[in-house]
Amino acid sequence: MIVVAGEALIDLVPSPQTALPPAPDGGSPAPGGPLPALLPRRGGGPYNTAVALGRLGSPAAFCSRISTDAFGEALLAWLRAGGVDTSLVQRGSEPTTLAVADISPDGSAGYGFYADGTADRLFALPPALPAAVRALSLGTCSLVLEPGASAYESLLRREAGRGVFTALDPNVRPGLIPDPDAYRARFRSWLPDVALLKLSEEDALWLAGAGEGPGGGRDAVLAAAKEWLAAGPAAIVLTHGGDGLTVLTPGGGELTVPGERVTVVDTIGAGDTVNAALLHRLDAHDALSRTAVAALGTEDWHDILRFAARAAAVTCSRAGAEPPFAAEVAA
């Protein structure tokens, strides 16, 4: 079983039918006009990852704290419909976190969060996970917002210490991080307990504290990733949006596969789908351990990354975080 731990929330996404057109000069719409309707969508990076694992056919469980409000009930129902085990979910009467999405013309999404006093922030460290757990995936807001962040961090360290394969996707939300340097130091402290680190090129630049200088972005990312590899991960996977994915391994291995060409509706949940697809395909290669990851060859990684690229493309081809089922990726 693969356990995904972290926040579940509601994304409020502008309805395509009511989204405001750009101004005549191509800029933002003029103020004072009608506002677009916002559609509630189930979301949260870890939540999306758990749903994607279930749809791909991996035995998966979700570990979080979810509100008892109507949104919370809807979040739980969707997990169960996807075949995800919810026995590790804690409940609370506090409201569900809301994330208001702002969709750019290219389909990329930015978020504003309403997270004060919400249920998922009060996550408490659970007892040891079941013996059947082979991997633990964490990331996003849950590792930023206290007091839950410290509980998730303790879960990461405890389970890594007993040999569980751990995966981390920081999925950085700068607006939630009051002290970037402190968070960067905290991120580096997690690396000895992380077996698989997956992050976007943009997140890697932010975590490295590097600017986008002319032509220097990719070089800065690779330099930082090599430093992070030396701290502990068995592999790092970098995502480059539509340009594909790269895996780096401690022995100096590096492989890039191109992205799948698709008409992008939006990119919501694409990175979370990559998380799930990587874990699902690593499991298919019987590689949910540091030793097994180290033994993977170029052909193995090519298969794993291509699978993740296909899965992400399906998610990008439809609105909201709607990860694919296994048959859709195979097709």
Score class of each variant (00 low, 15 high):
residue 75 L to A: 06
residue 75 L to Q: 03
residue 76 L to S: 06
residue 77 A to R: 07
residue 79 L to F: 05
residue 79 L to P: 01
residue 79 L to R: 06
residue 79 L to D: 07
residue 80 R to S: 08
residue 80 R to G: 03
residue 80 R to H: 09
residue 80 R to C: 04
residue 80 R to L: 13
residue 81 A to G: 13
residue 82 G to M: 13
residue 82 G to R: 05
residue 82 G to V: 09
residue 82 G to W: 12
residue 82 G to D: 14
residue 83 G to M: 11
residue 83 G to N: 03
residue 84 V to A: 14
residue 84 V to F: 13
residue 85 D to R: 15
residue 85 D to I: 14
residue 85 D to Y: 14
residue 86 T to D: 15
residue 87 S to C: 13
residue 88 L to P: 00
residue 89 V to N: 03
residue 89 V to Y: 04
residue 89 V to C: 14
residue 89 V to M: 08
residue 90 Q to N: 09
residue 91 R to Y: 09
residue 92 G to D: 15
residue 93 S to V: 08
residue 93 S to F: 11
residue 93 S to C: 14
residue 93 S to R: 14
residue 95 P to H: 08
residue 96 T to I: 09
residue 96 T to E: 06
residue 97 T to I: 01
residue 97 T to D: 07
residue 97 T to M: 00
residue 97 T to H: 05
residue 98 L to Y: 07
residue 98 L to P: 13
residue 98 L to R: 11
residue 98 L to D: 08
residue 98 L to A: 08
residue 100 V to A: 15
residue 100 V to K: 10
residue 102 D to W: 09
residue 102 D to G: 14
residue 103 I to D: 07
residue 103 I to R: 01
residue 103 I to C: 00
residue 103 I to P: 06
residue 104 S to K: 14
residue 104 S to T: 13
residue 104 S to A: 15
residue 104 S to E: 07
residue 104 S to N: 10
residue 105 P to C: 12
residue 106 D to V: 00
residue 106 D to C: 05
residue 106 D to E: 09
residue 107 G to L: 00
residue 108 S to Y: 04
residue 108 S to F: 13
residue 109 A to K: 01
residue 109 A to D: 06
residue 109 A to N: 03
residue 110 G to D: 05
residue 111 Y to M: 01
residue 111 Y to H: 03
residue 111 Y to I: 03
residue 112 G to S: 15
residue 112 G to Y: 04
residue 112 G to A: 11
residue 113 F to V: 07
residue 113 F to H: 04
residue 113 F to E: 03
residue 114 Y to P: 12
residue 114 Y to H: 11
residue 114 Y to I: 10
residue 114 Y to W: 06
residue 115 A to F: 00
residue 115 A to V: 01
residue 116 D to Y: 13
residue 117 G to R: 10
residue 117 G to S: 06
residue 118 T to L: 13
residue 118 T to Q: 09
residue 119 A to G: 12
residue 119 A to E: 10
residue 120 D to Y: 02
residue 120 D to S: 09
residue 121 R to N: 15
residue 121 R to S: 11
residue 122 L to Y: 15
residue 122 L to D: 13
residue 123 F to V: 05
residue 123 F to P: 03
residue 124 A to I: 06
residue 124 A to G: 00
residue 124 A to S: 11
residue 125 L to A: 06
residue 125 L to M: 05
residue 126 P to D: 08
residue 126 P to T: 01
residue 129 L to P: 02
residue 129 L to Q: 12
residue 130 P to C: 05
residue 130 P to L: 11
residue 130 P to N: 06
residue 131 A to K: 11
residue 131 A to W: 08
residue 131 A to Q: 15
residue 132 A to H: 07
residue 132 A to F: 12
residue 132 A to L: 06
residue 132 A to M: 12
residue 133 V to M: 04
residue 134 R to H: 15
residue 134 R to M: 04
residue 134 R to V: 10
residue 134 R to T: 12
residue 134 R to C: 05
residue 134 R to W: 01
residue 135 A to I: 02
residue 135 A to N: 03
residue 136 L to H: 10
residue 137 S to W: 07
residue 137 S to Y: 04
residue 139 G to L: 02
